[in-house]
Simulated scan of single mutants.
Amino acid sequence: MALKKLENWQFWIIGNIVSIPIYASQGLYFTSAQYSVFLILAILGWKEWKRKIKYE
């Protein structure tokens, strides 16, 4: 079950990476910046999740 949740972080990261240039190309720079923040949060969340799983 933990593996499935770990994989979800990767889907969020990929989705954010795809969304950022799409929004930027349409001139939606604030939304693109917002998804950049989401990307950083997803990466930090993934690392934290992996760290917690490692110690359990």
Results as ranks from 00 to 15, higher is better:
residue 36 S to D: 09
residue 23 Y to E: 07
residue 21 P to C: 01
residue 20 I to D: 06
residue 14 I to K: 15
residue 41 L to C: 10
residue 35 Y to V: 00
residue 29 Y to T: 05
residue 17 I to V: 03
residue 26 Q to F: 03
residue 47 K to F: 11
residue 41 L to V: 01
residue 40 I to A: 09
residue 33 A to D: 11
residue 30 F to W: 05
residue 45 G to N: 14
residue 15 G to F: 04
residue 15 G to K: 13
residue 5 K to T: 04
residue 4 K to S: 11
residue 38 F to D: 09
residue 33 A to P: 01
residue 55 Y to M: 08
residue 35 Y to N: 06
residue 55 Y to L: 08
residue 53 I to W: 10
residue 51 R to L: 09
residue 14 I to C: 04
residue 37 V to N: 14
residue 10 Q to P: 01
residue 40 I to Y: 10
residue 2 A to W: 04
residue 43 I to P: 03
residue 27 G to D: 12
residue 14 I to P: 01
residue 52 K to F: 03
residue 41 L to N: 15
residue 38 F to Y: 14
residue 24 A to Q: 07
residue 34 Q to H: 13
residue 24 A to I: 01
residue 4 K to F: 02
residue 43 I to G: 03
residue 5 K to M: 06
residue 10 Q to V: 06
residue 46 W to V: 00
residue 18 V to F: 05
residue 35 Y to S: 02
residue 16 N to V: 00
residue 23 Y to K: 10
residue 3 L to Y: 04
residue 15 G to P: 11
residue 6 L to N: 14
residue 13 I to D: 05
residue 20 I to R: 07
residue 31 T to C: 01
residue 42 A to G: 05
residue 47 K to S: 09
residue 14 I to L: 12
residue 48 E to F: 00
residue 14 I to T: 13
residue 47 K to L: 13
residue 53 I to A: 10
residue 25 S to R: 12
residue 27 G to M: 06
residue 11 F to L: 14
residue 42 A to V: 01
residue 56 E to A: 06
residue 12 W to V: 02
residue 39 L to C: 04
residue 49 W to K: 14
residue 25 S to C: 01
residue 27 G to L: 04
residue 9 W to I: 02
residue 22 I to N: 06
residue 5 K to A: 06
residue 34 Q to F: 08
residue 5 K to F: 07
residue 18 V to Q: 15
residue 31 T to R: 09
residue 29 Y to E: 13
residue 27 G to N: 13
residue 51 R to M: 10
residue 11 F to I: 11
residue 40 I to N: 12
residue 15 G to I: 05
residue 48 E to N: 11
residue 44 L to K: 13
residue 40 I to D: 09
residue 43 I to W: 04
residue 20 I to N: 05
residue 16 N to T: 07
residue 46 W to S: 12
residue 49 W to D: 13
residue 14 I to R: 15
residue 52 K to V: 05
residue 15 G to E: 14
residue 34 Q to M: 08
residue 29 Y to C: 00
residue 35 Y to M: 07
residue 56 E to L: 07
residue 50 K to M: 12
residue 32 S to T: 02
residue 54 K to G: 01
residue 49 W to T: 12
residue 34 Q to D: 14
residue 2 A to T: 10
residue 40 I to T: 12
residue 12 W to Y: 11
residue 4 K to R: 15
residue 25 S to Y: 02
residue 40 I to S: 11
residue 31 T to G: 01
residue 1 M to Y: 07
residue 1 M to K: 11
residue 40 I to C: 06
residue 16 N to M: 06
residue 24 A to R: 07
residue 33 A to V: 01
residue 31 T to Q: 13
residue 36 S to F: 03
residue 37 V to R: 14
residue 49 W to C: 10
residue 27 G to Q: 08
residue 39 L to I: 01
residue 30 F to G: 03
residue 1 M to E: 14
residue 39 L to T: 03
residue 2 A to E: 14
residue 46 W to D: 15
residue 11 F to V: 09
residue 8 N to T: 11
residue 29 Y to V: 01
residue 32 S to E: 07
